[in-house]
Amino acid sequence: MGAGDILFFLAAAVSIAAAVVAVTDERLLHSVLAFGVFLFAIACAFLIMGAEFVAVAQIFVYVGGVAVLILFGVMLTASRGAQRTVETEHPMWAMVCALVLAGTLIAVAAAYRPATAVQSRAVDVSLLGNALLGPQLVGFELIGLILLASVIAALAVVRREPGR
């Protein structure tokens, strides 16, 4: 077993464990912390796959943005009861659905044989830059628009009516 394999299994184990804790733990803060660990493990998985820029972008945006946002949400909606969450009464059906989903996806994944060989070299950042400002330019501009729209939407939703 090469070091790459060990690293992958470590990252995979941590991400699965953290995801399970994030979706099952009763205390909200523990859930969110486990989610943070999960995001970091996914960033490590990206690094193992040779996507350096995406891994760093994942840390920047997800850990530094989404996780912080969620923690802000936890802080602002703190009440006596909300710190302990209760699950629905029938988790068994959800478990069955999740197992079926997992089984199907794993079966398909195991049967997949890629047509071309896997490239294991890390993708250079300049390639990404050229793609973003070249063929993917429309997407690049559009995502700026989406970000603007979502910020305005979020502000509009939380605005207090004037006069309150």
């Binding site: 350096e52 760093v56 840390i59 920047f60 850990v63 912080v68 923690l71 950042v125």
Partner: peptide, 17 residues
Amino acid sequence: LNAGVLYFLAVPAIGVI
């Protein structure tokens, strides 16, 4: 790292958490 500068700027985000 290929994206070393970005890594340096991204890591303090963990400190925020």
